[in-house]
């Protein structure tokens, strides 16, 4: 699947969002917490065409957030949020997983983005 199904940007917190104009187009921010060995929430519902920012935070150690189908691969460090800006352009279910080995439960640290 092509990453063109989404418009994606990985941003550091505090930087301007070049793809969005604040005001009526201000993106909805969805916070996702990562800790050994789960994401909370691990099921994220988005609406087609709705600009959103996934605000990724780690509660313990370094983790990763990879959505292969969308070409997203972000590192989440403790003490600093990582923002991933998305504009869903296709309906479907997109799997994500931790892409930084974090221990014995790493393999099961997964979730889904569902675009309705």
């Amino acid at each position: 699947m092509s990453p063109f199904y989404f418009a994606v940007a990985i941003l550091a917190v505090g930087l301007a969002f070049p793809n969005f104009v604040r005001g009526e187009n201000t993106p909805r921010v969805i916070e996702i917490q990562a800790k050994k060995f789960e994401f909370t929430p691990n099921e994220i519902h988005l609406k087609l065409g709705e600009p959103v920012v996934l605000r990724l935070k780690s509660l313990d150690r370094k983790h990763g957030f990879k959505v292969t189908e969308l070409g997203v691969d972000a590192v989440i460090k403790p003490g600093a949020a990582t923002d991933v800006a998305l504009i869903p352009q296709k309906k479907g279910t997109f799997h994500f997983h931790c892409s930084v080995f974090c221990g014995s439960g790493h393999e099961g640290m997964t979730g889904v983005i569902i675009v309705d």
């Binding site: 990879k66 292969t68 691969d73 799997h95 997983h97 892409s99 080995f101 790493h106 393999e107």
Partner: peptide, 9 residues
């Protein structure tokens, strides 16, 4: 299989 971490970046 990158979704299963079966890859080298």
């Amino acid at each position: 299989m990158p979704d299963w971490d079966w890859a080298t970046k």
